[in-house]
Nucleic acid binder design. Structure first.
Lengths: 235, 235
DNA sequence: TCCTGTGAATGTCTTCACAGCC
DNA sequence: GGCTGTGAAGACATTCACAGGA
């Protein structure tokens, strides 16, 4: 008999969860090289993080390493996959067949990774009924029935900003509790649901910020100055 | 005469920088409603964050609000835009004309927001020379000349994972110090450069993690258990 | 000797709570 | 009275540094 913490239910920090998929990818690469064991150091290097972080992250999942040796690649892969819930498929529905929606539905990378595109929907009557890869575009009003028919677990919003919140509400109403939002709009969901966002323009704007700083760098190399109170001009 | 901190050079937390584009979008919406002044409370609500955070974030940029009143929409917009470096255009080059690269180059949302697509490049000789919207696909070897010709400031990597690091190296070599990486691969750049990544499968995997937790919730509702030492089975 | 697992220290971000100004 | 700006407290995340098992 023994008293221990059930690791499978330990709270895992968000930051750690966000890195698990990276470790997973790295482990697959390492596995492809026929390496049977891997150190936190190497895992870290290939994942672009530092070794202490890798060890701490993995320790949240359980105790899988061997001191003096490292981690057994195959079994760590299984553990990380299980923790991420990747032992089964999670069908997705793509909402919005515009430029981005089309690209996503044709992308193919989703199905391979356990996220088959179960359905594609839109509001536009002209688009409904058209073929899209293997799928026929269906009307968004059919969501509830589509969700149960295909076991949809995740909804991807690829509509213009205006429709995004409405789409999210419909997804939630249809029982979809995980949403990935590509629309450049703030979308809110109930606490029980999960929402992640990908905003392309936002990423570019962040880059723009740092890019501009570079240019400013040379000209404004001071933090503290003596300046006129009202004009702000340097004396 | 007066001693003061030059706000324009203050270090702004990364987390704050990442929210500025959201505030910017919100401010544009508020402006469209002809509202001339806005409180941190309202700005927060529309941006999906809390009011204290908005105030602290904005305070890093300077002192723009009026106590008892709020922020003047127009002038705050100018300040945020300026801070983000959006007072000028930043031409981008898209590398890789696959599914995603095509979608991005046709997207149009970039140009509107100050990130015109200056060029599209690929390695595939079959793609080079083909028309893509307004642009002719060029060979990646021409990057240095394309960069100076179009004043490219940002490179977007939309290639398969294998080529990503090489593309990043070529971008850096051509003088592009800001990179947005869509390839599902770890890419490293020199310290002076900025790199951001968007990984679609990764986002889905994170959602999968939380989704799975939902299902586990009911069955494993305990944190501490008495269990057999070796098997881990509950006694 | 090597490399994991983890407390403790440090650093960063968020939130609170209220003084200060309109 | 209302709302900003900001120290201080608290929560969270990263990194250090080393004990301890292989």
């Amino acid at each position: 008999m023994w008293r221990f913490v059930d690791r499978s239910r330990r709270r895992i920090p968000e930051a750690t969860v966000a890195r698990l998929p990276v470790y997973l990818r790295t482990l697959l690469e390492v596995q492809a090289e026929q390496t049977s064991t891997v150190s936190s150091e190497r895992l870290a290097e290939l994942s672009g993080v530092n070794a202490a972080k890798v060890r701490k992250d993995l320790s949240y999942l359980g105790t899988f390493g061997t001191r003096g040796v490292g981690y057994e690649v195959d079994s760590l892969l299984v553990e990380v996959s299980r923790e991420l819930g990747l032992t089964r498929d999670w069908p997705v529905v793509i909402v919005g067949v515009g430029n981005l929606g089309s690209a996503l539905s044709n992308y193919g990378g989703f199905g391979d990774r356990g996220f088959p595109v179960g359905a594609v929907v839109d509001t536009d009557p002209l688009k409904v009924g058209t073929r899209h890869g293997d799928l026929i575009v269906r009307h968004i009003d059919d969501l509830p029935e589509i969700v149960s028919q295909f076991g949809i677990a995740i909804g991807i919003i690829a509509t213009p900003a205006e429709g995004a919140q409405d789409v999210a509400d419909r997804l939630i109403a249809a029982g979809v509790t995980s949403i990935l939002n590509f629309a450049p709009a703030v979308v809110t969901v109930p606490d029980e649901a999960s929402l992640r966002k990908v905003d392309l323009a936002l990423e570019l704007q962040i880059l723009s910020f740092y890019r501009q700083r570079e240019e400013l760098g040379a000209s404004l190399d001071r933090d503290l100055v003596i300046a006129d109170k009202t004009t702000g001009l340097v004396v």
